[in-house]
């Protein structure tokens, strides 16, 4: 028998990887996520603002200096600091600060609830479609494409218009608007993961489809879905404001940032700063949500 060529290297010990001891401390997953978050000042800073906005909305009755509904015929469109109204009054003489604080409750709810609903429905459908492939995938994705054919604001307006105004109908219509997009993101991420060898290796270990999805697919799909969902929160706040602006979402006299923007619009020349306040609130909230979600996503990504 010929001497095998590769025998020359047989002396290298199989356990030489023992030398490669790392100097770094090994952390658990959530420990390392926390570590990265603590050192990300941008995310921390904007996180504090988001927290303040949420706290203000939750504890609105304790913080607001006036009732958001109390009108005053003589105190309309007053400037900052007029008679104890720190941010002035609106066109019906209601305290702007109180209305903005109370308005945050509805705006935040309109931003978060439709996105959570759409993520659950769209995400589930997308993972099913992406993992099953073939007929199931075609059926789900083509149905979603039908919704996709309409611009989102038009679809939201159409659904809200058909069902009538109100907060609940607004939430339903926004959920329907966001579901196809969430579904597509989840489907794309799942289809990418599905063809990787570790899924095949998991199948070879004898795991069933549900076990594989739970252990190997969801974790890898969650990242893209989470980042997309968090970017939708600000879109949802804006769309909800748009619906209210058009008179389809929140009905007066409820305080809502979009609705306030709509009604104060007529007083633009009299009180430009007061008119801009609800818009500024929407702007700050959405940009903070975007930046914080991006920071959390980066911290959760083990590969960075």
């Amino acid at each position: 028998m010929n001497k095998p060529v590769a025998l020359a290297v047989a002396e290298i010990p199989a356990d030489s990887d023992f030398d490669g001891a790392p100097a770094t401390k090994v952390r658990g997953y959530w420990q390392s996520v926390g570590y990265r978050l603590r050192h990300d000042w941008v995310t921390l800073g904007f996180g504090v603002i988001v927290l303040l906005i949420v706290l203000a909305a939750v504890f609105a009755p304790l913080i607001a200096p006036f009732s958001p509904y109390a009108q005053s015929i003589i105190g309309r469109l007053k400037p900052f600091g007029w008679r104890g109204h720190p941010w002035g009054t609106d066109e019906l003489g209601r305290d702007m600060m109180s209305r903005l604080i109370y308005g945050g409750r509805i705006s935040l709810m309109m931003g978060l609830v439709p996105v959570v609903i759409a993520t659950m429905i769209g995400g589930t459908l997308g993972v099913i479609g992406g993992f099953a492939g073939k007929v199931a995938n075609t059926a789900i994705m083509r149905t979603m494409d039908v919704f996709y054919a309409f611009p989102s604001i038009l679809l939201a307006v159409a659904i809200s218009g058909a069902m009538g105004g109100g907060i609940v109908n607004g939430i339903i219509s926004l959920s329907l608007v966001f579901t196809p997009a969430m579904c597509r993101v989840a489907e794309t991420a799942t289809a990418q993961v599905k063809n990787l060898d570790y899924i095949e290796a998991a199948r070879a270990s004898g795991a069933g489809t549900l076990t594989i999805i739970r252990h190997h697919v969801l974790g890898n799909v969650l990242g893209p879905v989470f980042i997309y969902a968090s970017s939708l929160v600000s879109v949802s706040i804006l769309l909800a404001s748009g619906l209210s602006f058009l008179g389809l979402g929140v009905q007066p006299p409820e305080p809502d940032w979009g609705l306030m923007l709509s009604t104060l619009r007529q007083s633009l020349y009299v009180d430009p700063l007061g008119c801009a306040l609800p818009g500024i609130a929407i702007f700050i909230t959405s940009i903070c949500f975007n930046l914080v979600s991006d920071g959390i996503r980066a911290a959760m990504d083990v590969r960075i």
């Binding site: 990787l196 060898d197 570790y198 095949e200 290796a201 070879a204 252990h215 190997h216 974790g219 083990v302």
Partner: peptide
Amino acid sequence: RRQVQMVFQDSYSSLNPR
């Protein structure tokens, strides 16, 4: 599959990155 196992070529894509 309990008695026959497989090692894949691409050592990176055959491990779950997360």
